[in-house]
């Protein structure tokens, strides 16, 4: 059994955030990581969020990923409000809306490539056989047809990140959040993985927010948003 998808008005923005702030700590030790961020990402868009270390891009990604609550402001995914949610509701939102690609591949070391991809599918209600079938289809699509039964330690860095991409898009979650997906890869592998992500997401209609500071892949984005010191800023002119 595969999980059904809900049709959403395509005019509804995938991401709509207004006046978003995030403060860590309190009192004299308080640190404001986001200082009133407004941002809108359309459905099907491939957006890159770029900025220097400590600029707030990972905090913003964490809020969009429903793993961190904002301090103030509004955030909506496909029209559904994230602000003011109970923590217990967040796993459901993550399952329904989001596929994740992490800086490290973050694959389960004990599971094979196909099992790693099947896990989120099974959590979404796929039967085991259906999950494995879809996992194999996606692995084939990312060029790992002969690696279904390989564990992460039997794959190269680029292959692991391809599996991570496959895991993120499995089940067709509408939003893919990628955190420095090329950071642990060499230049060639990084380019290949990003192109693969771009192509697959275009074909399948995923919205992508990709945090990166790898300027070699900026040109693959539909749009690049710059963040500095907790604020969205215009792109540097150079």
């Amino acid at each position: 059994m595969s999980a059904p998808a809900l049709t959403v008005d395509t005019k509804t923005p995938a991401i709509d955030i207004r006046g978003l702030t995030k403060t860590y700590g309190t009192g004299a030790l308080a640190f404001q990581a986001l200082k009133g961020v407004d941002m809108r990402v359309e459905q099907g868009e491939f957006m890159m969020l770029v900025g220097p270390s400590g600029s707030g891009k990972t905090t913003l990604l964490s809020i969009l990923g429903c793993v961190l609550a904002p301090t103030e402001g509004e955030a909506r995914l496909f029209g559904e409000a994230l602000h003011g949610r109970k923590e217990s509701e967040l796993p459901r939102l993550r399952l329904e809306y989001i596929g994740f690609i992490f800086q490290g591949h973050n694959l389960m070391a004990a599971l094979t490539a196909e099992q790693n991809i099947a896990v989120p599918l099974e959590l979404r209600g796929y039967g085991h056989s259906a999950a494995i079938k879809e996992a194999r289809e996606i692995l084939t699509a990312v060029g790992l047809k002969d690696k279904f039964a390989k564990r992460p330690d039997e794959l190269s860095g680029g292959q692991r990140q391809r599996v991570a991409v496959a895991r993120a898009i499995a089940g067709r979650p509408p939003l893919i959040l990628a955190d420095e997906p090329t950071a642990s890869l060499d230049a060639e592998s990084g380019m290949q993985v990003t192109k693969l992500l771009k192509d697959l997401c275009s074909q399948r209609g995923h919205t992508v927010v990709c945090v990166t500071h790898d300027n070699r892949i900026f040109h693959l984005a539909d749009r690049t948003v710059h963040i500095e010191d907790g604020r969205i800023v215009p792109a540097p002119s150079h």
Binding site: A3, L6, F78, L95, E122, L123
Partner: peptide, 21 residues
Amino acid sequence: MTVTGSLAAPIRTRASLFARV
């Protein structure tokens, strides 16, 4: 922006407790 397929949409089914076990 390039979208050649239909847009992906939220997945509104969650596995049963038995399946999660």
